[in-house]
Each structure stands twice: as C-alpha cells, then as structure tokens.
Write a protein that binds this DNA or RNA. Structure first.
Length: 563
DNA sequence: GCCGTTTTCGGCCCGACTGTTTTCAGTCG
C-alpha cells in the first residue's frame, strides 16, 4: 500500500524533532520541519512522484527528496532509524510541555536519564533538577506545572470555544480598542491559543485581567500572557500609529511573517511588530493600518484568511490575488433539517428564516430512514413532505424551499433511499453516518459509489470528523475529489463549527480541480443558520471565489446544474 | 538542508520575557 503524504510528513517531523534534541544544525532542522509541512499540504502523493517532480517542489532539495523516496518505499529512512536507536523517541513528547525545549530535554536526558514525562515528574518531585547547572527551584516547579497542564489540556479549541474565551476577557478592554488576531482572525477551524492586540496600555489592562483569568503566565509592558479556562491568551500592547504592523505580526501565520521579512530584506529593510526599518539609516516607517504597510512593501492587501505563505504573497506582489467569496455572495443554505427528521423547525419556519436571511432558497435535507436515531424519512414520508413543501412555497414567500434529503451512504455503498425516490428530489446530499471504522480502501470505494450515483449531487461532510472529538475517517480524499470532478458531483463544506468538513486545504484541492463546493450549515436549530459565516471563512481559506461555490448560483442556475 | 534578478557559498525573521545569571541562553510566538 502506498504511503500517504501525512505519514511521510509525520516521519520527517519526527526526524526534525530528534535532530533538535541531539542538537543538530538549526537550519537543517528547519529545512526538515518546513518540508514536512509542505508535504502535508500537497495534493499529489509524494510516494508516487518522480525524483524530478519532487525536486521541483520548493523546499525540497536533493537530500530531502532522497529521504522522501526512501520513506515512500520502506515507511522509514536510515537517518530516522539511526536517531531512534540513539535517542529515546519518548523524549519527543516532552517538547509539548510549556517551557521545555530541545536544549532542556537534552540536558535532562543526559544528566538525569529522563526519558519520558513520568521520569521528569519524578525528578522534579524528588528535587533532583535543582542540582543541575542553569536550573533552579523555579524551573523545577515550572516543570511540574507544565506536566499537570499538559495532562489536563483540552487541546485545541473550536471556534465557538474560542469565542467564549474571548468573551471572558472582553470586559477588560474598552470597546473599539482591541482586536483578536492570531489563528482565530485567520479563520482557522481549530485554534491553539488566543492573541489580542490592544491600543490601551499595559498599566490600564494588566490590573483588570487579574480577576478574569486562571493564571498570569507572564506580565510585561509590551506583552502579557494569561491562561483562561486552560487556554493561553497573549495580549500585545501597541500605539495606534503602529497598530498595522502589530496586527500583521500577531495575526501571522508564522510562515507568512517569515516570508514577509525575507521580502523586506530584499529591499534593504527589516520588518518587525513596530514597523518597517531601513537598514541603511535605521529610519522606522510606522503604519496605523495593515493595508498601508502591505502597500509600502509593494503588496496588494492580503486578507487574514489567506496569510499562510501558500502562494498568496507572490500573487500579492503582482496584484493578482483572487476575488474571494463573501457572505453576501451566498444565495441560500444547502443543508438544513426540519422537524420531519431531527431538526426543531417546521417547514414554514425554514422558509421564514431563509427570507429573514435574504436567501433565495433553502435546501430542506432531512435524514433518510435508515438512520434510526434521527427519525428519518422513508420513500412514502418523503412524498408527503414533498406536498407540504409545495404548499409552503405556494404561500408566496421570497425564499424557495427546495426538496432534498441527506441520504445515508450504507456500508455496502448503496443509499438509504431508492433511486426512484431520489430522482424526484431537487437536490440530494449523500453522507456517511454509520460504520465509521472501515479501512481506507473500503471507505473510499463506498463513498465513490455514492459519487457515481447519478441522483447524488453533493457529498455531505466528506471526512466525518468532529473537531476535537472524532478524527476524520480513513479515506483517500484525492480519489474522491478526482471522481467527483468526473461525475460533476459537489463536495460539501459543512459550516457547523464542530465539523468544518471539508477543511481549507481539501477545499483548495477540490476547487483547483473544478469540483464545486457546497456550503451548508447542517442546521437543526434556528441559531445554526448563523454558522454560514464559518463555512464562508473556510471557503476563503480554500481560495474559493463565488464561482466555485454552488450556493452562489441563482435558484434557476442551481436547478439547471442539478438536472 | 535549501536557495539565488547582489550570491553555487554564505546566508537563513525578529523580538519579548523568564530564570539563572553577573551578561545570557532558552523558549515562545
């Protein structure tokens, strides 16, 4: 079986982590780290790529290409195995502890034979750390706290959790003086920590934080870090006149900032969070907004959602960034449940909500009857629903209810409703809800069968992940995307903040092959309609323009597309 | 280890804060 890009990337990442602990050249380590990240985002399987094609990928040179081919063939490579023999791989987990880096790990391992987190805990509790040169009592206590924190950690946040953490702190700031930056602002589907930029001063804000946080991690005039409900929040204080550069700096991504700084170096300048500095005379140019700073660097304004160093900077230099889809391009919601299955709204209420939102259409897509827990519809009930939908549409609202279903893809790849019933519907979503643990090949073939069914228009939440709760199915998405392109089937960007499935990079791959993306909120309750904004953000991160999005079509265009 | 519209060798983003130090290394974002 072919080794997936993810596996190759993991091996290269492990290699770079072990190199870090052994104190290898930092630039070499970074080269491996970067290569891992690049390969993880690549669509074409590197295991199948020729040497020449591999070398054409920026960031992959002769040495890494050789290792990639080795891993592609054997699942591992020589250098990795040699390092594993020399360094206990369990040490790598220590890198996850806050305040513990490769140098610290190397010392602990060599001097105290610490090989895993448990060992470190015992050494710290037994006060054996403080005897080491460069270590003291505070470090010892810090390790114990980091271990406790790591074990209790809820991991990454979904966007709803992130918003509640932000709300916890919002009272400390004067409205209009602060902006949430970081991965939250870039619209990522999951968020590690929260970054905030404020124009209020540290002396004003720091005291106000005390009773709103679990812990103050560190506190300064320029930056304060706190912990709220187990999550780290970094706050940077800035002057209004430097807000632009500080926002760019703290919004990231890290890779984006590095590329930006490289570009500045080309013209003899230095970029930091305070502005752009001329190397020659030290003069600093300050920017109160991001757009001015981008313009100064010769770049088109780059929206936060694109700042991942995935080609956007090069396009911005030529003023060729695409016009991305926006919320106002969305003419309807293509995944909504009613009280005919497990939703809470009546058909009339769906139409009324659509009207309030200014939509031209809403796809009523209740579950099929095979899914016991959701009181799904069988063929007969589906027909009765059809009459009801006609009745609601005759009431003359401005939002048309389309009749569809979210039909189950059964374990053998057949669908939970008969073809004759499906062919009567306006649009059909097909989704996997059961037997989620199948192997990669079976799951892929199962979904491809649904793609190939001529009545199926959209594959719903194609990877089945639930953020932070359930990993994606084992599935070969590149095969699904290829087949969807051939059959003209759309793939869903499920806008539920707990799914966001497909995610940005998969959306970009689909879009690049011309597979239409359908954004649906998977609404079950009235509040869920507002999740459309999350879906649009992910589509922006996937470089989609309005033309790439199925529900930016007019009602007539959509019906023509489906027929 | 990668890379080149100054370079095939000599660079590689930049700064804040802590702890352990008598000037800085390590970590983090």
């Amino acid at each position: 079986m072919e080794v997936s890009n993810r596996e190759v990337a993991r091996k290269l990442l492990l290699l770079s982590e072990l190199q870090e602990i052994t104190g290898d050249n930092v630039f070499k380590i970074r080269a491996f780290y970067r290569a891992a990240d690049i390969i993880d985002r690549l669509n074409n399987p590197v295991a199948l790529m020729s040497d020449e094609d591999l070398r054409l990928v920026p960031g992959i040179g002769p040495a890494i290409a050789k290792k990639v081919r080795e891993i592609g063939k054997t699942g591992t490579c020589n250098e990795l195995e040699e390092l594993r023999a020399k360094v206990p791989p369990s040490l790598v987990e220590l890198l996850n502890l806050e305040g513990v880096g490769p140098k610290t790990i190397a010392v602990l391992w060599k001097k105290l034979n610490v090989q895993c987190i448990g060992d470190l805990e015992k050494a710290a509790a037994g006060h054996r750390i403080r005897s080491l040169k460069g270590f003291g009592e505070k470090k010892e206590q810090g390790f114990l706290r980091s271990i406790a924190l790591y074990r209790a950690a809820g991991g990454r946040m979904d966007r709803v959790e992130a918003e509640s953490v932000i709300n916890n702190l919002s009272g400390a700031f004067t409205p209009g003086t602060w902006v949430v930056a970081g991965s939250y602002r870039r619209g990522k589907s999951s968020i590690g920590d929260i970054d905030i930029v404020t124009t209020e001063s540290a002396s004003v804000i720091n005291p106000k934080l005390k009773n709103r946080v679990d812990e103050v991690i560190d506190e300064g005039e320029r930056r304060t870090s706190v912990r709220v409900r187990g999550h780290r929040v970094d706050i940077r204080f800035t002057h209004e006149r430097q807000l632009g550069s500080m926002l760019i700096y703290l919004t990231g991504s890290k890779e984006f900032n590095i590329r930006l700084r490289e570009i500045a170096i080309e013209s003899g300048r230095k970029v930091n969070e305070y502005g752009v500095q001329e190397r020659a005379d030290g003069k600093i140019h300050e920017f109160s907004n991001e757009q001015d700073m981008f313009a100064f660097l010769g770049l088109q304004n780059i929206i936060p959602e694109l700042r991942e160093n995935q080609g956007e900077i090069e396009l911005a230099r030529n003023y060729q960034l695409p016009q991305l889809v926006g919320l106002t391009d969305i003419r309807g919601d293509l995944h909504v449940h009613s009280d005919w299955s497990d939703g809470s709204l009546t058909l009339e209420q769906l139409a009324m909500n659509g009207e309030t939102l200014g939509y031209d259409y809403i796809l009523c897509s209740d579950h099929s009857a095979t899914l016991g827990i959701t009181h799904g519809l069988d063929e007969e009930k589906l027909q009765r629903q059809s009459h009801e939908i006609e009745r609601v549409n005759r009431m003359g609202g401005t939002c048309t209810l389309l009749h569809g279903t979210e039909v189950d893809i059964l374990v053998n790849g057949s669908l939970g409703l008969q073809d004759h019933a499906l062919s009567e519907l306006d649009l059909v979503i097909a989704s996997v809800h059961t037997s989620l643990k199948e192997d990669r090949d079976s799951m892929t073939r199962r979904v491809i069968m649904a793609v190939e069914n001529e009545n199926v228009d959209i594959i719903g939440h194609p990877t089945g992940r639930l953020l932070g709760k359930r990993p994606p199915f084992e599935i070969d998405l590149s095969r699904i995307i290829d087949r969807a392109k051939e059959t003209g089937t759309s793939l869903e960007c499920n806008a539920s903040p707990w799914r966001l499935d497909l995610d940005d990079t998969d959306i970009r791959h689909s879009k690049e092959l011309g597979v239409p993306i359908s954004i649906g909120t998977d609404t079950h309750h009235e509040d869920d309609f507002s999740h459309m904004r999350y879906g649009v953000t992910i589509a922006q991160r996937g470089w989609c323009s309005a033309k790439d999005i199925l529900n930016s079509l007019t009602l007539q265009e959509l019906l023509d597309w489906a027929s």
